[in-house]
């Protein structure tokens, strides 16, 4: 079991409240997507859930243990985090980059164990990165690079993966490729996924649960189909959202209100 729970979480920076009194559950083994307009506080919240940003008030619980009470390494063995714009170290090979995911598992001063190496090779094979493993990260295309970034998160071997806008800058095929790959982890690996997404159609297709945020607060949360069709969603974007059923999946078409 690997459940994250935010209990009355508020986060401010320079006296500006970015996240206000958020209480939400991210259930074990499910995919929850956080949606909401720009500036809603999505990134701030997922950074706090990943434990890389401290909260001003409230507590984040990992399976009923306060996240802040865990050591950095313990936390990193439970939660992997992929930011919207990962820093790509110049000159680092794909293999070394993916192997960074093993950092919380081996000594900081010693080399990775052979078990760590096996995990890295397994991830490279699963993500079809083996052929690229000696290439430099900065020389990859956007799609390949994002696959390697996911590879690092998978190599971390955590039961929870948190992603901030994992489809940024990818074409439609690569967006699907990334999300399909994550869905496989939920379906077959029992992994809990928490992701922010701007594309509401993709959010509805891939998430089981959707959390709607605006102005730092959670407005609504529940099964994806319900939240996607809720009037609050359209209200928070100040748009009319048409939901069209195409072969059983919802496609969301935004229409400006003054038309």
């Amino acid at each position: 079991m690997s459940e994250l729970r935010a209990a009355g979480v508020s986060i401010s920076s320079d006296h500006v409240t970015l996240v206000n009194e958020v209480t939400a559950v991210f259930p074990s083994g499910r995919w929850t997507t956080i949606v909401g307009p720009n500036g809603a506080g999505k990134t701030t919240l997922v950074e706090a859930l990943a434990g890389v940003r401290s909260v001003t008030r409230g507590t984040i619980f990992l399976n009923d243990i306060a996240l802040s009470s865990l050591s950095e390494r313990e936390r990193a063995r439970n939660i992997a985090f992929v930011p919207q714009h990962p820093v790509i170290p110049f000159g680092m090979s794909v293999r070394d980059y993916v192997a960074l995911g093993r950092t919380p598992h081996h000594s900081l001063f010693g080399p990775p164990t052979s078990a760590d190496e096996e995990v890295v090779v397994d991830v490279l094979v699963r993500l079809d990165l083996l052929g690229l493993s000696s290439r430099a990260m900065h020389s990859l295309s956007g799609g390949e690079r994002q696959r390697a970034v996911l590879g690092r998160a998978l190599a971390q071997g955590t039961k929870i993966i948190i992603l901030d806008e994992p489809t940024t800058g990818l074409d439609v095929r690569h967006q699907f490729e990334v999300l399909e790959l994550l869905r496989r982890e939920v379906d077959h690996g029992g992994v809990t996924i928490i992701a922010t997404l701007h594309d509401l159609t993709l959010a509805g297709q891939f998430a089981q649960d959707v959390v709607l945020m605006d102005h730092g607060e959670v407005l609504l949360s529940g099964p994806a189909k319900e939240v996607i069709r809720s009037p609050q969603l359209a209200e928070s974007y100040e748009m009319t959202l048409r939901v069209v059923d195409v072969d059983g999946s919802d496609v969301i078409i935004p229409v400006p209100r003054d038309r």
């Binding site: 950074e47 990943a50 434990g51 890389v52 950095e72 390494r73 313990e74 936390r75 990193a76 063995r77 939660i79 992997a80 985090f81 930011p83 990962p86 820093v87 790509i88 170290p89 680092m92 960074l100 995911g101 950092t103 919380p104 900081l108 971390q156």
Partner: peptide, 12 residues
């Protein structure tokens, strides 16, 4: 080399 935020998420 992946920056402070990501290093922390890797347990550093």
């Amino acid at each position: 080399s992946v920056g402070d935020l990501e290093s922390r998420s890797l347990g550093l």
